[in-house]
Design a protein around this nucleic acid. Structure first.
Length: 645
DNA sequence: GTTTCGGTTCTTTTT
DNA sequence: GAACCGAAAC
């Protein structure tokens, strides 16, 4: 079997796909077939006889890696399946699960997701007696600490830059971070940033491990390279250090994660770090009508210090993006819905329509209206499937069964019982000596003895449900543990606790289904915390309504495309976000974000500019139109007259 | 000393 | 809607 690369690719893509070995930089503007190029590159390498097991494909979501390898497999055959692929965190986790003892900690560590990290940080603030209205919130602390670690700068410096004024106990922040790090170490837990930090340390300090993987990875391919942070760049450089077959693809115009430490200088300076790098540019845009690209180009022209790229449209058509000025959010919602109906009548399938916005809460009004008008939609919510309370509650039991030293899981499980709060749960944990397995009857009994009277009945019910479940059962059917726990206790608990408890119980079925796809419970638990929103959502969307339009933040829409795209709330302070503008380089990043939003559209782009938004106390906030809209030369857009009085 | 409950406040972006 | 705070309840 042989693939006709010349036929499938244009000249630009073909050059990148067939580039000779060595470092390669592919500057791929939006919609120029970046994914296609990577996919064909993988297939090309396989055809050249490179063993897929010796390739590493780093992407922004696990799903992206899966899709690319899936397509490469169709092209080049089943062997592609052996490729290492996924997110940076995924890779780091994989390395650490194998080698963490080499740098001094047990490979059975637990991963803290953002919620876990926040509550641990709050606990540290409280313990240090810093709880105060003026002390920065856990969210702020975590983002500063994360930024420091991902950009490899001292926390003091990050704090100083962030609070330019004479600040709020800023000098205490490093202490809190140290306490947080201690607590994590004490419970053998890693947060998301630790995964990267420790994986880098592993490769830095352990030459044997480093060389082993350097030898292994003949080819390293990185997608969305403009959004890597210094740690991730170091990881890549280390792994590709021996064979130096490093191909990175990206677009500095689409760098939108600097607040997380991403630095597109990694991308810009690639030719300096790899002087022998071959550089390819993809500038032929297959996605969008020229009118859409004109608007995108006009906007991004405001950002001078980047690789200059000119998007060349292949498609033809004189349609211009629509600019709609609206009175308020309600009118915006009605406009979107009416326009969706019109698009549907014209034959645009719902799956080809997306509504994008800067922040999750900006979609609330539209959600209400869509529900009322019975327009099916799915939303990439701010809360991930695996971060919802009920999912985490049930998983805490699984986690303990798998890893009896999982303190976070134990605290969570016990706090479900009445009369048990944080303090009591921690006290019992300490009395148990930091170990608890729901599968060991003595452990279960030991907890029962220490519970206050009010909590005993519930615990008894759980204990009965667990009797007879052994390690073997767990291995065979972890779902059974969920079912028993749910029947004996959790369903009733959920009914008492949550308003929408039926839906949450249904989610537990979903969880079981999901679980059944993994070979072992451990495999599932290892993946769970690292699942991205899009990964988890891919399931729901596929199973649920294919007849749904999508609501998403611009960030989560990265890499995707639709026939029709609505961009909501294009007002100063909302998009661009007022908070971002305060940051250094905020205007530029917001501009790139707008660029990403606009270039998602293939055929129609709607820019919605409401003038006012209702405040909680029934007043109104008035907005001026977004700079990204006023900067567009008027002739590039079609102004939609107001249709609602 | 802890937990629970009710009222209040405020929503950026994510692995 | 969920995080926070203060006060009541155990």
């Amino acid at each position: 079997m042989s693939i006709d690369f010349e036929k499938a690719l244009n000249a630009e893509q073909l050059a990148a796909v067939t580039a000779r070995d060595g470092p390669v930089l592919v500057i791929a503007a939006a919609g120029t077939g970046k994914t296609r190029t990577l996919t064909y590159r993988v297939a090309h390498l396989v055809e050249r006889g490179v063993d897929a097991q010796r390739m590493l494909l780093l992407t922004f979501t696990n799903r992206a890696a899966g899709e690319m390898t899936g397509r490469a497999r169709e092209l080049a055959g089943a062997t592609v399946g052996g490729i290492w692929g996924g997110t940076f965190h995924h890779l780091a986790n994989r390395l650490l699960r194998r080698h963490s003892p080499a740098i001094g900690f047990d490979a059975g560590y637990t991963i803290l997701d953002q919620d876990d990290s926040l509550s641990l940080l709050r606990a540290c603030v409280n313990e240090l007696g810093l709880r105060d209205r003026h002390f920065p919130k856990a969210e702020v602390l975590l983002s500063l600490y994360g930024l420091a670690r991902n950009s490899e700068r001292p926390i003091e410096q990050v704090v100083e830059r962030h609070f330019h004024a004479e600040a709020v106990h800023a000098e205490e922040i490093p202490r809190v971070c140290a306490a947080y790090a201690d607590r994590k170490r004490g419970m053998n837990a890693l947060d998301f940033d630790d995964l990267l930090v420790e994986a880098c340390r592993l490769l830095r300090e352990r030459a044997d491990v480093r060389e082993r993987y350097q030898e292994r990875f003949l080819h390293v391919l990185v997608d969305e390279y403009q959004d890597t942070n210094p740690l991730q760049a170091e990881l890549v450089d280390a792994l590709a250090g021996r064979h130096r077959n490093l191909l990175v693809v990206g677009d500095d115009f689409q760098s939108i994660y600097s607040w997380r430490g991403a630095d597109f200088q990694n991308f810009l300076s690639f030719p300096e770090r790899y002087p022998d790098a071959q550089v390819y540019k993809l500038e032929t845009n297959y996605r969008s009508l020229p009118g859409i690209l004109d608007v995108a180009n006009a906007c991004i022209a405001g950002n001078p210090r980047q690789f200059q790229k000119t998007l060349r449209a292949v498609r033809e058509g004189a349609v211009r993006p629509v600019l709609v000025e609206l009175r308020d959010g309600g009118q915006q919602a009605r406009f979107v819905i009416e326009e969706i109906h019109r698009l549907r009548r014209e034959g645009v399938p719902p799956g080809e329509i997306a509504v994008l916005y800067r922040a999750h809460f900006q979609a609330m009004e539209l959600q209400l209206e869509l529900t009322r008008e019975q327009v099916p939609y799915v939303i990439t919510s701010g809360v991930r499937f695996f971060e919802q309370a009920h999912i985490k509650d049930v998983c805490s039991l699984l986690r303990l069964a798998h890893q009896p030293g999982d303190e976070m899981a134990f605290l969570r499980l016990l706090a479900l019982l009445p009369k048990i709060g944080e303090r009591t749960a921690r006290r019992i944990w300490e009395q148990l000596g930091g170990r608890f397995s729901p599968l060991r009857p003595p452990d279960v009994a030991a907890v029962a003895e220490r519970l206050p009277a009010g909590a005993r009945d519930d615990w008894q019910a759980i204990a009965e449900a667990l009797t007879g479940v052994g390690t073997d059962d767990l291995r065979r059917a972890p779902g059974e543990l969920i079912e028993r726990f749910s029947a004996a206790f959790y369903e009733r608990y959920a009914a008492e606790t949550f308003e929408n408890y039926e839906r949450r119980i249904e989610d537990l079925d979903e969880l079981e289904r999901y679980l059944s796809r993994f070979e072992t419970l451990g495999d599932f638990l290892n993946e769970m915390a690292l699942m991205t929103n899009l990964d988890a959502q891919a399931e729901t969307v596929r199973r649920a309504e294919p007849d749904s339009i999508l609501l998403s933040t611009v960030h989560q829409a990265k890499g995707l495309e639709w026939s029709a795209v609505f961009v909501l709330w294009l007002a100063e302070g909302l998009f661009p976000s007022g908070r971002s503008l305060e940051e250094q380089g905020g205007d530029e990043e917001e501009r790139r974000l707008f660029y990403v939003a606009a270039t998602r559209a293939k055929d129609s782009l709607y820019l919605c500019v409401p003038a006012a938004r209702r405040t909680k106390d029934r007043g109104w906030n008035f907005y001026t139109p977004s700079r990204f809209v006023t900067e567009i030369p008027p002739k590039l857009v079609r102004k939609e007259p107001l249709r609602y009085g």
